[in-house]
Amino acid sequence: MKHKSFFWFVLPSSIAMLLFIFFPILSVLLQSVFTEHEQVIKEVRNCGPFGCQTTTSIDQEATAALREAEPLGRFVGLGVYFDRGHLALSEVSQLWRESAGLGAFFDRLLNLPFYKAIAFTLTYTFVVTPLTIVLGFVIAVAVNSAARAIRGPLIFVSLLPFIITPLVGSLVLFWMLDARGIIGSAMQVLADDPDLSVKASTPLMWTMLMVYGVWHSAPFAFIVYYAGLQTVNQDTLEAAMVDGASRWERIRYVVIPHLLPITTFIALIQLMDNFRVFEPIVSFSAQAHATSLSWAIYNDLSGETRQLSSAAATSFLTIIGVAILLSPVIVRTYRDFTRK
C-alpha cells in the first residue's frame, strides 16, 4: 500500500488515539509534577489603642489571581511521588529504622495507602491469573467430553459470568455473600460462627474478591482453550496411541504443546485485565480491607475535591507497573516479527 493512502486510511483512528490516549498520558505526567498553589497568606498589622498586633489571613484575591495565572500550580518535581499518599519515602525509611523485624515492617508498610493498594493489586493479579487458567482448562476439557447436543447450552451458561458488566456481576455475588444472603448464611452455619461477615474480615474479603475474579474470567480461558482443543491434530493423537502412548503421555506430549502458545495469550490478556482490578472493590465496598491502584485513582478523582495531581502520580506509577509487567511480551512480539 502506498504511503499516502495508508496515511489517509489510518488518519481518523490515529487522531482519536493521539488526542485521547497519547496527549492525556503527557498531561498526566505534567500534572503529576505540579501541585495546587498554596493559599496566599497576608499579614495585616492592626494598630489599636493597646498597641499593634499582627494577624495573618488568607488573601482570597491574590490566591485566585495566582491560580488563574499559573493554572498548572507550582512545580514540585517528584514531590508528589514521594509524599505520604504515594511512595512515602520518609515514612518508609522511618518504619525501617523503628520496626523490630521484617514482619513488623511489612505490617506497618501496608498501612500506607499506596503500598496497601499495590499489595492487593499484585496479589490479586498473581493469584487470579493462574487459577483462571487452570479452571478454564478443566472446564474446556469437561465441555469437550460432553455430548455434542448439550455443548451449545453449556457454552451459553459459561459465557454469562464473563460477558456480564463487572460492576453488576460483583454486586450479584456480593449480595449473596452478605451476612443475610444465601452464601453468607451458609458460611455462618458451616463455620459455626453467627457473627461471621465478609464485610468485617480482611482475609475473607481478599478471598472473596479473588473468587469473584476467577469466576469472572475463567470463561474467557475456557472458550479459548475449548477452541484450541478443537484444532488438536487427531492424526497425531492416534499415531501416538498406535505407538503405545498412555492417556497421560498423549496429553503431555501432544495436547499440551499444542495449547502452550494459547496459554501465553491467555496469561497476557489476564495479566493486563487483572492488574486493573477496580469494579469489585466498589461493589464489595471493600476499601477498608482491600484497595487497588485503579481504585486509588478513582478515589482521588471522585468526590468533592478532585485531587488531580495525586491521581496523576498514581496513574503514572500504574502505567510504569503495566510496562514492567508487559515488557517480556513486547520483547517477544518484536522478536517474532523480526524473525519473519
Binding site: F20, I25, V28, M272, R276, L308, S315, F316, L326, I330
Partner: peptide, 17 residues
Amino acid sequence: LIFRAMPPITLVSGYLP
C-alpha cells in the same frame, strides 16, 4: 497494543482539567 494494556482510568486525570 501498549495503549490497549493501559488501564483506561489512568487517562482520566489527564482529561479532567
